[in-house]
Design a protein around this nucleic acid. Structure first.
Lengths: 123, 123, 123, 123
DNA sequence: GTGGTCTAGACCACC
DNA sequence: GTGGTCTAGACCACA
């Protein structure tokens, strides 16, 4: 995994996990990787992953069973959507709109492309 | 300026210059900063800026007068739009669409937000 | 400050701060000690105090102004009361009741003593 | 057993033994564990336990038969109650009252909770 | 093995 | 100066 410099690593890991959940790769009550495991895989310090998991637990996206591990929460999809949507609106939309304005584009132009994208990738 | 790791720096500088032109901060036939000047300002090697300018000249976005400097080209806006639009469609739209799909969002949702954005920032 | 072994240090520090607020020693919008300052005073690692402050911010008991410091929140008393009351009910009451049962005491016995205590200490 | 730092260990062991007696786990004239045995179990120095037993003998809570061991005294319950009650009043009540004052609580609030506690744990 | 807490020490951005 | 993040490494309780 490649980390951007502009955002905290632990939040980027949170996004990574939310994506796994939102794309249904990780299902409700399924175990997520252990702190140490994910830390090793992403080549970060276990404390950093711990921080991500604490954060996601707070957002009711994952829950914990002591001595066993972290699991995808019951309302994970709802809560992950809400969390990521806020982030998306605040951070990504302005960049998008700026580009669209610069390029003289309209929202209408996106419509058919979005349909095409969904057909190609998720069906 | 903050550079991402994923794209060549000289292309990121090209984007930066295109933005200046598309947002009408730099007008047709106006002189763009000298290679040394921009290199110093962006804290990169002059060779990198040189590469950007050669690239933009190829795209007919800027032109060169030997011994004097580089200038915004006559059709700069048209050509910059075309160049950036290709990039936007190929690189940024897929990321956007992936997020929108994950979050269960529709293009329609963007419409009023885009209007609001334009009103707030460019009027 | 003396720390018990049974509870996390960062939570004991949280209790300490809640007491300061509940006993009106620290007022709303007043600055609390800086992370480093309190860490030095309590002879713990700054990270531990940082953790306390993050926790208390989450509970809406203190808030943060970047580069300036942490401050007592508007609803600090309400939120601190709620937080500490839960803790009190769950952890301290059972110990109290166990002792009272062992000693054959009744709640009624406490009544006049509590009045006396309040008169002596807070008036 | 977990020892607090603030009180002598031998007194904490005395409390432990009083509890056993007050909760009727150890009956009158029953033999209490030998000094060595209890020291091993609690992982303390036998001298410390010896000190506890001497102290409790002074309080007429246990008595000694040389060469045989220590036994729960005839008036153990009365004397243990008296001993523990003094301690409770002097040390634990002030802490309790301080918390109740801070949290704006009243003795009345404790009444139904105490009843519930007794029902759940001792019936 | 799991998570949870703590220390030491570093570097950063903001004020 | 302030907080915020990250690493490295340690030790603990729980299972």
């Amino acid at each position: 995994m490649q980390f951007r410099d502009s955002v905290s690593i632990y939040l980027q890991i949170a996004d990574y996990i939310c994506e796994k959940i939102l794309l249904k790769e990780w299902k409700v009550d399924e175990r997520v990787p252990s702190v140490r495991e994910l830390a090793m895989q992403l080549e970060v310090n276990p404390n950093t992953v711990m921080r991500t998991y604490e954060f996601l637990q707070q957002q009711n996206i994952i829950y914990n069973q002591r001595g066993i591990g972290y699991f995808v929460g019951t309302d994970a999809i709802k809560n992950a959507t809400q969390y990521r949507k806020t982030e998306f609106m605040d951070n990504e939309l302005p960049v998008l709109f700026r580009n669209m304005y610069m390029l003289g584009m309209d929202v209408e132009e996106l419509k058919p492309r979005f349909e095409k994208y969904k057909k190609q990738n998720f069906s």
